[in-house]
């Protein structure tokens, strides 16, 4: 039975499903490592999903039969800008105004949900589609059995998501900025006494998080589904926050978590589709159940940034 289920196409499906989690959760990792919890990821994802979709829709010529590279690039750029603004706003609320992070995040989420729905309704009279990022076909490589389907027939944003993992690891662990960021998340007082601006570093980290969350949304609307609808991300931003805990605040840990969750989802979809005799209501729970179980056993809370959710106030 397992060979019926675990096919190359199921693994390819899992990789596609993992893409938005990777962008959003890596972004959230930066924020949390600096000590700022942002529960508003979902809202920023929705704004990114909408704005990039809007950008591509506006710039693609009428009746286009294929994708337009410039329009797609512009779509991603719009998402980056929106993410930048939302990151800035999040940082202002959480770092400068020192709001309660668990609650301010919910506010940001609701804002993103409401605003993206409102803009969609005002600017589009009904659901429409765009030509999003196409699958890339590599000569020879894409035609290799199994491996070709899994690794070499994905779109650019999927590769971007996986390229982000080593990059994030490098930035966090091998650069001065990463060292400062971690220091600020562990012990802001000590970092401050070393002359590091806690506020500045946290702003940077939260803005990186905003940009990546927004791109995560874009990866769904113009990199996977080619359509926007209200609440398109459907809770993925909250899963992304959980994946940061799951991955113990490490880029590779986050990746393993995202892949596990997405592969189980893909397996579950396959199992229901071919009908293995277990009700779909039960099977649909498996990714969530598995994540909860894995969180209980795998999460090493000891790695949690010591100053997470703790605002920094400079003692005079």
């Amino acid at each position: 039975m397992i060979e019926d289920l675990l096919t190359a196409s199921v693994i390819a499906s899992g990789i596609r499903l993992a893409m938005p989690y990777l962008y959003a959760a890596i972004g959230e990792t930066f924020g949390q490592r600096s000590g700022v919890l942002n529960l508003g990821v979902e809202g920023v994802m929705l704004l990114g999903a909408y704005s990039s979709f809007w950008g591509v829709y506006q710039l693609t010529p009428d009746k286009a039969t294929s994708f337009d590279p410039m329009a797609l690039a512009a779509g991603v750029l719009v998402a980056v800008l929106v993410g930048l603004l939302m990151g800035l706003a999040t940082a202002f609320i959480n770092v400068t105004l020192q709001a309660e992070q668990g609650i301010s995040g919910i506010g940001i989420y609701l804002f993103g949900l409401g605003m993206s729905t409102l803009l969609f309704q005002k600017n589009f009279s009904q659901v429409v589609t765009v030509k999003g990022f196409p699958k890339i076909h590599f000569p020879v490589l894409s035609d290799i059995p199994l491996i070709g389907e899994i690794f070499f027939r994905q779109n650019l944003l999927v590769y971007g998501a996986f390229a982000l993992i080593p990059l994030a690891w490098f930035v966090l662990h091998k650069t001065t900025f990463g060292l400062r960021l971690r220091a600020v998340g562990q012990n802001p007082e000590a970092a401050d006494s070393m002359g590091i601006s806690v506020t500045r570093v946290r702003y940077m980290a939260v803005i990186i998080g905003g940009v990546l969350a927004s791109v995560a949304g874009a990866s769904m609307s113009i990199g996977h589904l080619n359509v926007f609808q209200q609440n398109l991300t459907d809770g993925r931003g909250f899963i992304a926050v959980a994946l940061v805990y799951f991955g113990s605040w490490r880029p590779y840990g986050v990746m393993y978590g995202a892949l596990l969750f997405s592969l189980v989802t893909a397996l579950q979809i396959k199992a229901v589709t071919i009908g293995i005799g277990i009700p779909s209501e039960l099977l649909s729970m498996t990714p969530y159940l598995l994540t909860i179980i894995a969180l209980i056993f795998a999460s090493r809370r000891i790695d949690q940034p010591a100053a997470l959710t703790r605002p920094f106030e400079r003692g005079e």
């Binding site: 096919t7 196409s9 199921v10 499906s13 596609r16 499903l17 938005p20 769904m220 996977h224 589904l225 359509v227 609808q229 609440n231 398109l232 459907d234 993925r236 989802t265 893909a266 979809i269 396959k270 229901v272 589709t273 071919i274 779909s280 209501e281 649909s284």
Partner: peptide, 22 residues
């Protein structure tokens, strides 16, 4: 495939893909 959601477009997409693969 009842995907157990009225709102998850990504899951609907992958369910369709799984059928196409079959």
């Amino acid at each position: 495939n009842y995907i157990q959601s009225f709102s998850d477009l990504a899951k609907a997409a992958e369910a369709a893909q799984a059928m196409i693969d079959e």
